[in-house]
């Protein structure tokens, strides 16, 4: 079984578990797969920008993220579940984001 089949199989498994009432078609599964690959590809390309800080750190980060991404595959169903329309979920991420932004701007600029 090739890597592609393994990913596709696991995406279908997770989808079956998550949305039992929703029919799974080839379109939804392939959409999920595209999203998954796009996500990982853009993440890996974005990590290359760490080279501006330090080249060796970049190499380590790329390898680490690649391994984590393969291990955590499929990410997209989980990510999609996190970005649902529940208000409690939204406000949780909003407050987390507020915390991160303030911390980064405040401490990042004073202490770096």
């Amino acid at each position: 079984m090739s890597l592609y089949d393994i990913i596709l199989k696991r995406i279908r498994e997770i989808q079956e578990k998550a949305e039992e009432e929703e029919p799974i078609t080839n379109v939804t599964a392939s959409a999920m797969l595209t999203a998954e690959l796009t996500l990982i590809a853009s993440l890996l390309i974005a990590v290359v920008m760490i080279r501006l800080i330090h080249p060796i750190l970049m190499i380590i980060m790329i390898i680490a993220i690649f391994i984590i991404a393969i291990m955590a595959m499929p990410i997209m169903p989980k990510l999609r579940k996190e970005q649902n329309d529940s208000f409690n979920n939204m406000i949780f991420y909003v407050v987390i984001a507020l915390g991160i932004i303030i911390a980064l701007f405040y401490w990042g600029n004073l202490n770096v």
């Binding site: 939804t28 796009t38 996500l39 990510l79 970005q83």
Partner: peptide, 16 residues
């Protein structure tokens, strides 16, 4: 912006 691009477009693919 990168986060918006990646999350927005990947989420768009999986909508119905």
């Amino acid at each position: 912006s990168l986060l918006a691009m990646v999350l927005g477009i990947t989420m768009a693919i999986v909508q119905t």
